[in-house]
Nucleic acid binder design. Structure first.
Lengths: 126, 126
DNA sequence: TTTGTATATACCTTGACACGTATATGCTCT
DNA sequence: AGAGCATATACGTGTCAAGGTATATACAAA
């Protein structure tokens, strides 16, 4: 469980994170809203906490959990290398996504082909 | 292996995807650059292809793989709900949470006490 | 104190998946 | 035809993580 990607690979953990977007929550609240057993919630929260996705403060017997930005930035940073690429494939559809991204550098040398592909035969494989 | 998140949770798969950012590659090229056995590359490529991350065309005996944008957009869409939250500074985060301060329907109106970090407690090793 | 509540952890089982090895398939060239 | 290369797949194995149940810890109120 080293990487942030493994952390967010778990659906229940993503559900917890999405819950926390709106506001901080106690374990019991998440348990009810997500309808999962309490130990499950606690265990996932532990993973999320150790990965830096959330932090908690104590309020009497409760623990209030809230998001922390770090790991999200990490995911975003990884995604950034592909962002240039998929906005290049843009149709009119995802134009709105483009506006939240920086403008990529113009394609420098996108096709560095090592294979000679002399016999490029179009294959209707799709 | 339903979700895109499980797909990118695998380090070797992320390595393959990063390789393909620069240009399309054949299996053999990836095998060399990533120094992993050919069956491993092929198997990961299969997963990536079925998840829509890559597509391939046939060039004689080779298969040239290249990225496809769809799943990346999906990851980005998920990340979007957290973006407003992390892109601001921690300062803004605190204000945000402060503003939210959503007080749930506590069943018994417990002592509303704000304490400090009680996140990790040193655990006796057995 | 005792009881009740909130959360964390220990133990066990199960299932998924990544890997290695071997082999199959498909193509090219001689 | 054959040999040789490039890629895919089948099979067996080990590891690791998620779930369930039970219990431990911490706090609160009686």
């Amino acid at each position: 469980m080293e990487s942030v990607f493994e952390i967010i690979a778990e659906p229940n953990r993503r559900a917890i994170l999405s819950l926390l977007v709106s506001s901080q929550q106690s374990v019991g609240e998440m348990e009810r809203q997500l309808r999962m057993p309490q130990p499950t919630v606690s265990k996932h929260l532990r993973v999320l906490r150790e990965a830096g996705f959330v932090e908690s403060t104590v309020d009497a017997q409760r623990r209030l959990y809230r998001l922390k930005p770090g790991p999200f930035r990490e995911v975003d940073a990884w995604l950034a290398q592909f962002r240039r690429f998929w906005s290049a494939h843009v149709d009119a559809l995802e134009r709105h996504l483009d506006r939240m991204n920086h403008q990529p550098q113009g394609s420098s040398t996108p096709t560095k082909r090592k294979t000679k592909e002399g016999t490029t035969r179009p294959k209707p494989r799709t």
